[in-house]
Design a protein around this nucleic acid. Structure first.
Lengths: 265, 265
DNA sequence: TTGCGTTGCGAACAATGTTCGCGCAGGGTG
DNA sequence: CACCCTGCGCGAACATTGTTCGCAACGCAA
């Protein structure tokens, strides 16, 4: 049983067969219902019996598709990473490589920077898209970046890390372009082996052979974006800072562009 | 009933009386047991019945001290903010103003910068202490900064915001000192009213009359610290970056000092 | 001592995740 | 075309959780 996972993770075999199609459809409906519930009550409030009710199904019936509540959550996490990655790629003008069962490419993002735009414009676009997705999907953001579900560690080959590698790859893309164009000012501190890590780290995100300093630079920029967004989405900025969150985010983003040497003061 | 809350939030009346002392003691034991459980199984895994078992109490008995599971969580959140603030203040050489029932000032932090140290040293110290506490208290970090508990909004006058204001105040202190010394380079973007917010925002953290740009600067620096720490603690950095987290954090911190004009390249 | 407020307990209720065994229908195989 | 059998869904059940209610015991003040 639970062939849905294999059909979802590795889409090697064609999902031919009438039965497999029905299974796939209800599996999608199940995830959609669960995602609706997460949107309403948050990741911690997701109840299997409630999504069963939405589907008009028995609670036990769900276990033909899911091995546990946490398993459903990890499936939603993987989908969430893919959704975020789709948005980031759209912001970069990429037509969302290899979208499988999720049908919708997303039109509206604050800034879209085509592939021939200058790198600073592209980095700005992907940063703003990161925030825009997070602010408009707070509960999914919590699902992806909030408390990890207790006792769970993502299997290194699981769909979760592959999906997360996609968002890392989208964030890295402008940096790689800048590095290729020689426009990236690399801080000597970041090239230090203790910072850059062993060669081969970041392999799932960065192509092999890239400058050792790009990895730390990516994580540094990502961490900055993420910090502002995380504090804002979880209500820590908004608490003492009602309306300036986006402006503050833009200011920090600009500062980061400057730190990377991509823009002159 | 539930006089413990009032006795805990406002310690106006002396807790005289033999009974009040016993009540206070079991209330502390209760919070300690709950905190132990949070440390072991995470905030989402905290079970009232389990802490009741630890205390050798009936589950119903807990409700003489707690109005709900979420109420207990908010009490732990407030305590967590205070604990973090204590660590930050210790790193700044302040003797942890007004510690009430929590008895322990904390000796070991990576860097302690006395009040007469240069501001950049002090800001470094508080930043490193922020990370050190978070990394050594991952589940409490998740409690404070992870998913907000569903449907809960901190009451504006509650103990939670007061405690959080303490950590904001500790982070702000070096910035205020730098501003007072005229050493803070203020980005004109950050003085813009749309970024700085209405006058009077950040009142619980910053003393009135401080430069309007200090608030955004604080949130900017805090967001940077927080982003790196959050990604690290929740396992997103560690996943593709085994050992360089502290070095990366230090690099970003140094970059931030530079952005603030507190250190020359 | 008497009385009252506080404290704790046992039982109970609703809701949750999860398992087990059964029926049943539909699809691939003879 | 007929058959079997695989997969799907269900009902019931069990353990565990948060929470409430009424009752018993106890400390403290009058």
């Amino acid at each position: 049983m639970l062939t849905a996972d294999t059909a979802d993770t590795a889409e090697t075999v064609a999902p031919t067969g009438r039965r497999a199609l029905a299974r796939e459809r209800t599996w999608r409906e199940l995830k959609a219902a669960a995602l609706d519930e997460v949107r309403e009550v948050g990741p911690a409030g997701l109840a299997l019996r409630s999504v069963a009710r939405r589907l008009g199904m028995s609670p036990a019936g769900l276990y033909r598709y899911v091995d546990s509540r946490d398993g459903l959550l990890t499936a939603l996490i993987a989908d969430g990473y893919h959704d975020l990655a789709d948005h980031l790629e759209v912001a970069l003008g990429i037509d969302t490589a290899a979208l499988g069962d999720r049908e919708r490419p997303e039109p509206q993002v604050p800034v879209v920077a085509a592939a021939d735009a200058p790198v600073e414009v592209r980095l700005r676009a992907v940063g703003l898209a990161y925030r825009a997705w997070s602010v408009t999907h707070p509960n999914e953001f919590g699902l992806l970046f909030g408390d990890p579900i207790p006792g769970y560690a993502a299997p290194a080959d699981g769909p979760t890390v592959e999906a997360m590698a996609r968002v890392g790859g989208a964030l890295a893309r402008p940096l790689l372009e800048a590095a290729a164009a020689g426009r990236l000012r690399v801080d000597p501190v970041l090239s230090d082996p203790t910072v850059a890590g062993p060669p081969g780290a970041m392999d799932p995100v960065l192509p092999p052979g890239t400058d050792r300093a790009v990895g730390p630079l990516l994580l540094l920029a990502w961490g900055r974006l993420h910090g502002q967004v995380s504090l804002e989405v979880f209500g820590h900025h908004h608490w003492l800072f009602p309306d300036g969150c986006e402006a503050l985010f833009r200011a920090d983003l600009e500062r980061t562009l400057h730190d990377l040497g991509l823009v002159t003061p």
